[in-house]
Amino acid sequence: MVTQVLSLTRSGLADFVVQRATAFILTAYTLCVLGFFLSSDNLDHGALVAFFGTTTMQWFSTLAALSTVAHAWIGMWTIGTDYLRPAHVGGGATVIRFAYQAVCLLALFVYILWALSIIWQF
C-alpha cells in the first residue's frame, strides 16, 4: 500500500469517510445559517451578534470551521494529485504539487484562525 504522506489521514478510505462526515456537518450548518437569514427581516448588527453569539452557535460554528478545513484539505489534495502529476505538468510535478499544497495549507491555517477569532470574540 502506498502511504500518502500529505493526505489528511494517510488512508484513502478514512479520507473518504471524513470528507462525507464533514459534508454532512457543513450541510446542517448551511441550512441553519440560511434559515436564520431567511427568517429574520430587518437584519442588523444586534440580531447577527445575538444569533452567532450564543454558546450553542459558537460551538456549532467552531465545528463547521474545523469541518471546512478538513473537507477542503482532502478536496484540494485530491484535485492536486489528479492534475499535478508528471504526465500533466512534467518532471517537476512533485515540487509543483508540494508548492500547491503548501499554499492550500497556509490558506486553511489563516482561515481557521480568522474564523475562530470571529466566533469567540464575545
Binding site: T68, A72, G75, M76, C104, W114, I118
Partner: peptide, 21 residues
Amino acid sequence: GVVLFVGVAFALYALDLAMSS
C-alpha cells in the same frame, strides 16, 4: 469546490466586518 475554497475568504471578510460593530 475550488470556488468555495477561495470564497471562504470573502465570506469571512464580510462576516468579520458585519460582526465588528
